[in-house]
Design a protein around this nucleic acid. Structure first.
Length: 482
RNA sequence: GCUGCUAUAGUGUAGUCCGGCCAAUCAUGUCGGCCUUUCACGCCGACGACUGGGGUUCGAAUCCCCAUAGCAGCACCA
């Protein structure tokens, strides 16, 4: 066995980071974390690790429509699984009073105005670079309207606070974007509010108040960064260093939380842990190690190129970690019973790990009746070696295969190019269902696997699996990768 | 439509800022071989890329221009 050769691309250095950094991971608690979150979380974590400093977890729960009360817990669990070195935790829902105050300050600076236009009407005016009537309010009028908003004088959609940018800005996305809105429902799970701040406002305010020095986030935030800079400018705050990495598409899975939620609701998926999902808990259930996720994310880096995530690359990292430590066991898919003629009862000893004899071996009793993988008999094999036991010849003359003891010598099996297959005693094996993304496989496995709950083992000639549960009914395992 | 970002092998990535050391790195993948009582691991070998077109230059993956493609934003989501 060799030490796992982990070589990961070095992340580029960050400017203005020599004296330490303050960075943040800021998820929306709408569901559990997935691979997309892991990228942001790990990248930031790695830089805090490199430069030293604080790593802030900021729960961005300012949209009650997109808050799942369970997600507060799930996000924490997922962060724990990833092993992030979080030093500070903030909930934006605890900070509304500050946002209101600073919103008022921004109005006082002439940087924001209360807009009571209809949304669609404003959109049209904006495209035409034309100010809406509300833009002409004086600061005093705005302050008054703002107070009315806070006092509940407006209903949902009737008023918003907009940041005054530049109406002839070439990018329509920059023109007078909203900072607060009014929402009458749903109720926020943690607080009572009807004036809700929007992310471009809270992010700018919080990044400043929390002393964030470096922001690493996806390219989809480039426009938001530019919007947030307007707020920095009004207040004269120092901007953090921004880096935006490219979009990451993931082959074969839905990453959108709302789509996953819908799939779960409709029964298409069993839950957030369904192994067909890209959630971290789904990966963990299959036996993907958090360190493999970290490595693959660091390997991908912070390039601005849009990329497609490759499961192969993740599996390779995971295999590097798992292969040296995973115990080996026999699993017989599609088990077919056979009686071996001419063999004497005995015990077979098979290494728990072929590269590490110190781990010892497991013992399998042979007493004439065994089960073998059905697919080994699809073509007319003449000889098979039962691994760690002996050779058998296969006689097809009666139509169905008859197996007869054919000696111990491995060299005979080699000479005959006999397949070496996993086997189990017909009496003394445990039922095992192996769930894989491609479907379920029924089979039998060694009884010892009963002691391996939550561990990742290798089913020889099948692949690495995680033992999910052990009951009187049998074992449930999840296929990880070859 | 407007605005912006990106463009190296099947996938990820190095090199691009400061042109020559790049007939382009490493990993993964695929194929072949060796090793092996697993179709795992390990070892050896092969395959495979600078989006296209102009320009600057003695010389361009690297600089400039144009084109094309992909992505994102233009939400009272994050």
């Amino acid at each position: 066995m060799n030490a796992p050769k982990i070589h990961t691309h070095e992340l580029p250095n960050l400017e203005r980071a020599e004296n330490g950094v303050v960075m943040r991971f800021a998820p929306n608690p709408s569901g559990p974390l997935h691979l997309g979150h892991a990228r942001a979380a790990v990248l930031n974590d790695a830089y805090v690790e490199r430069y030293g400093g604080r790593y802030i977890l900021r729960i961005e729960d300012t949209d009650p429509k997109r808050v799942d009360p369970d997600a507060y817990r799930m996000v924490q669990e997922d962060i724990g699984w990833m092993g992030l070195r979080i030093t500070d935790i903030f909930y934006q829902s605890d900070r509304f009073d500050q946002y209101y105050k600073i919103g008022g300050d921004l109005i006082g600076l002439g940087g924001a105005y209360v807009c009571t236009c209809e949304n669609e009407q404003f959109r049209v005016l904006k495209q035409a670079k034309t100010p809406c009537p509300c833009r002409g309010h004086t600061i005093e009028e705005n302050l008054e309207l703002w107070q009315k908003m806070l006092d509940g004088a407006f209903y949902e959609g009737e008023a918003s606070l907009r940041v005054r940018t530049s109406l002839d800005h070439p990018d329509p996305a920059m023109r007078d974007f909203p900072a607060f809105r009014i929402l009458n429902e749903p109720m926020h799970p943690r607080i009572e509010a009807h004036v809700y701040p929007l992310m471009n406002f809270t992010v700018a305010v919080d990044d400043h108040l929390m002393g964030v020095t470096h922001v690493i986030r996806g390219k989809d935030h480039i426009a938001n960064t530019r919007r947030q800079k307007f707020i920095y400018e009004y207040f004269g705050w120092n901007e953090p260093v921004y880096r935006h990495y490219g979009r990451m598409g993931i082959e074969g899975v839905v990453l959108s939380t709302s789509q996953m939620r819908e799939g779960i609701r409709s029964g298409m998926y069993s839950g957030w842990e369904d192994i067909r999902l890209g959630t971290l808990r789904a990966l963990a259930r299959r036996g993907i190690q958090h360190e493999a996720v970290r490595q693959v994310v660091l390997d991908i880096g912070i390039g601005e190129t849009d990329i497609s995530f490759s499961w192969d690359n993740l599996f390779a990292k995971n295999r590097d970690i798992i292969d040296p430590v995973a115990d080996r066991f026999f699993f017989v898919p599609d088990p077919v019973p056979f009686a071996i003629a001419g063999a004497t009862a005995r015990e077979a000893h098979a290494l728990l790990h072929p590269g590490d004899g110190k781990k010892g071996y497991r013992t399998l009793k042979f007493e004439e009746d065994v089960v073998l993988p059905g697919q080994e008999f699809q073509n007319d094999v003449k000889m098979i070696r039962l691994k760690d036991l002996f050779n058998v010849t296969v006689d097809w003359s009666s139509g169905s295969p008859l197996l007869t003891y054919a000696g111990e010598a491995l060299s005979d099996a080699r000479a005959q190019k006999a397949p070496i297959v996993q086997w189990l005693p017909a009496e003394g094996a445990t039922r095992c269902t192996l769930h894989s993304p491609d479907g379920d496989i029924q089979g039998l496995c060694e009884n010892t696997v009963r002691t391996m709950q939550d561990k990742v083992v290798q089913f020889e000639r099948v692949g690495f699996v995680r033992i999910d549960s052990v009951t009187d009914e049998g074992i449930i395992a999840y296929f990880c990768h070859k």
